[in-house]
């Protein structure tokens, strides 16, 4: 295991590995999304409380999970990068941020469109929504910081530090529905079980896997570009660049 890890942690080998993995994750995401949407729209029944409006859940919850999860993965790579100065770690963090921001935006957007018919408001300043908005601003702030610092190593470190500080926000988002009074409904899935109808849950989980696969494919695509850029003086990249 350790051998493999070091082997693939080298940008040159990881570039090739990522290139082989991307089509699998991309097609996996597409197939899962088709199955998930089919279940979501044609198999899952109408909700007895929310009618058809609840069908937003099949993107809202997976997107919200991915927004938080990608941030945690970014924080993980930032910590590894700061601790061990591994080149690939910082590139992974940079590659993940835009996709994390995208999913957070989707969760806010779909939340607004779900909130309007259910709560009568597009937006309320409660803990869950506000902390999720802060998550989006964190993503944007970290990306702006990277863009603003010309020195790559300093940018990596500054971004990693901000990512780690911002990580406290993720548990706040997750537990906000328990800690504070809110319009937002509680977690649909808890360690003690779920309150959801089984087929609705199945559709939502399949969509969550689709989002997960998509995020992996997107981040790997982005990290390959970063690797080329940063390793451009090495022989193996020069060989790729040969016409």
């Amino acid at each position: 295991m350790a051998f493999n890890l070091y082997y693939y942690a080298a940008p040159a080998t990881f570039y090739g590995l990522a290139g082989r993995l991307i089509p699998w994750f991309a097609w996996g995401a597409a197939v899962l999304a088709v199955i998930g949407l089919y279940i979501g729209f044609f198999v899952a029944p109408t909700d007895f409380q929310q009618g058809e409006a609840y069908r937003v859940i099949f993107i809202h919850v997976p997107a919200a999970w991915m927004g938080m999860f990608i941030y945690l993965v970014m924080a993980f790579w930032s910590a590894i990068g700061l601790a061990f100065k591994t080149r690939l770690s910082f590139m992974m963090a940079r590659a993940l941020a835009p996709t994390g921001a995208l999913f957070t935006f989707i969760s806010l957007w779909t939340g607004a469109l779900w909130g309007k018919p259910m709560w009568g408001a597009w937006w309320v300043w409660d803990a869950r929504l506000t902390s999720t908005l802060i998550l989006l601003f964190l993503y944007i702030g970290i990306m702006a910081l990277w863009a603003a610092i010309d020195d790559r190593n300093r940018g990596d470190k500054a971004g990693a530090l901000l990512t780690l500080i911002g990580a406290v926000n993720v548990p706040i988002i997750y537990f906000s529905v328990q800690w504070w009074n809110t319009l937002h409904q509680g977690a649909s899935i808890k360690p003690s079980g779920t309150s959801m109808d089984e087929i609705m849950l199945t559709g939502m989980l399949i969509m969550a896997f689709a989002a997960w696969f998509y995020a992996i494919a997107a981040a790997l695509t982005r990290v390959r570009t970063l690797i080329l850029e940063r390793e451009r003086h090495t022989d193996w990249v020069k060989r790729i660049l040969e016409p």
């Binding site: 109408t46 009618g51 058809e52 409006a53 069908r55 937003v56 993107i59 809202h60 997107a63 835009p98 996709t99 995208l102 935006f105 989707i106 957007w109 779909t110 469109l113 779900w114 309007k116 018919p117 998509y214 997107a218 695509t221 982005r222």
Partner: peptide, 27 residues
């Protein structure tokens, strides 16, 4: 019609779809 919630449901799905397609193009 989505039981009268068409605007909200399709507004969610459309924007999500556009955002993801946009990211793929940018990538």
């Amino acid at each position: 019609a989505m039981g009268g919630y068409g605007l909200y449901v399709w507004g969610s799905y459309l924007v999500t779809f556009v955002a993801i397609v946009l990211e793929i193009i940018l990538l």
